[in-house]
Nucleic acid binder design. Structure first.
Lengths: 234, 234
DNA sequence: GAAACAGTTCGGCGGTCACCGAAGTATCGG
DNA sequence: CCGATACTTCGGTGACCGCCGAACTGTTTC
């Protein structure tokens, strides 16, 4: 198969509004059941079933059957990233409606990218980790000794994470900020801690996040991040 | 229009093998004439004309008519980047045939990404620029005083570049190396100098590049890059 | 001016595919 | 065991779209 054929095949998967809607929904990194996907995409279950099977066969989704449910999620980080890049290119112009503008700005402020923190929040946190030398990015990306302590202070079990196949630290480019943020299993763990401690909240079932008052205080104390740095200009 | 519809519309443009082939060809950053595109895609001119018009109308290509020719190129850097990301996701598995493997490896070693250096070469050059403090990436990306001199030594007219609307320096994430390399007008200028001085060569009409013997020497002397660092393991 | 060349427009053909509803399978709760 | 629920499979339909060749416009060359 030629390169062009491979690209065309992949693109065809996203070239349908229903399939695109399903994939975008799963950008929040969580598993969705088939009926949920059918309802967000606005199609019947038979249609959704076909779509999901297609996407799973193509390797961009994975599914897991538990009882009478079929749980579906994005197959991996790379899928989420490419999807982010693609959807940013698809909507580069500022939204027309006031409602759209606000929604877009909130999404730029803080959101989930597959399973880690992204948007302004993600890059500000990443910058702070680098400034305080908790991570070192001069040769690839590595955790410093100080960084180990810092993450352990957040109850992150580093030994456990290191045992997995997935890389501990990875940079992920952010498509609104165009700058890197923390991904990898450590990035995922960080997002989990932020959610558990209600430093961020997920107000609707999308990838949008909201930094709570407690979260602002925690960011200030733990990383010296001023609340103003989280603001996104229109 | 919903997000899903926007993504689907964009994806549909790439969901055709002929259109995908054209776009991939233009990843070399140069302008292609319509008949060249028709011939690489393997379709007649009438078909190619329709495809190009569609892509131009969608804003992912730009065209310019000169005499009886229509020169076509990618509409911008962001298009090239998203295309790179997409095509990397489309072909993640190592190629089957020996020929395919070799080709892929050569592409990973050095290539053009829209209009700047990418692949291992791009990343290694970017690292060397940072190590020698010719650029500073601690807060965004900036040229240091030493960097100014270095680029001027290469006959890069910085004043001229700064007068343009395009940002001087930008990071572009590399989709084979998964690390940043230099983009922006300075990245483009650097590629141009490399080509002019035959430090790299474009052996076929693709985005693939080859570092010449002279190029290896120049990299060694100007940036302290050992030839071995340019090698890409299979 | 004629011939060659680059590209466009149009009509029509053929294939693909998203969709649904109906019928079928597997699981869960009582 | 029975009804409800979650999902799959299948057949049929309608729409879309990529393709070409033929006829056309505009430009360059001689």
């Amino acid at each position: 198969m030629t390169d062009a054929a491979a690209v065309a095949n992949l693109a065809r998967l996203l070239a349908d509004q229903s399939r695109a809607a399903m994939c975008l929904a799963m950008l929040d990194g969580s598993a969705w059941t088939l009926s949920q996907l059918a309802s967000t995409a606005g199609v019947t279950m038979s249609t959704a079933s076909e779509h999901v099977s297609t996407l799973v066969a193509a390797g961009i989704l994975t599914d897991e059957r538990l009882g009478r449910n079929r749980y579906v999620r994005l197959a991996g980080q790379d899928v989420g990233e490419a999807l982010e890049a693609f959807s940013t290119l698809a909507r580069p112009a500022p939204a027309r409606s006031l409602r759209g503008v606000g929604e877009r700005r909130r999404l730029a402020a803080a959101r989930t990218c597959y399973d880690h923190l992204a948007g302004r929040l993600g890059v500000v946190v990443f910058d702070a980790l680098a400034e305080r030398r908790l991570v070192d990015s001069s040769h690839g990306l590595a955790l410093t000794d100080n960084g180990e302590h810092w993450f352990e202070g957040l109850d992150v079990d580093l030994d456990d994470l290191r045992r997995r196949r997935r890389p501990l630290l990875r940079e992920c480019i952010d498509w609104t900020e165009r700058r890197p943020h923390l991904a990898g299993s450590l990035g995922a763990a960080l997002r989990d801690r932020f959610l558990e401690r209600t430093w961020v909240r997920r107000p609707d079932r999308t990838r949008r996040l909201e930094v709570t008052g407690m979260g602002q205080q925690a960011l200030q104390e733990l990383l010296g991040i001023e609340p103003g740095r989280l603001r996104v200009e229109a």
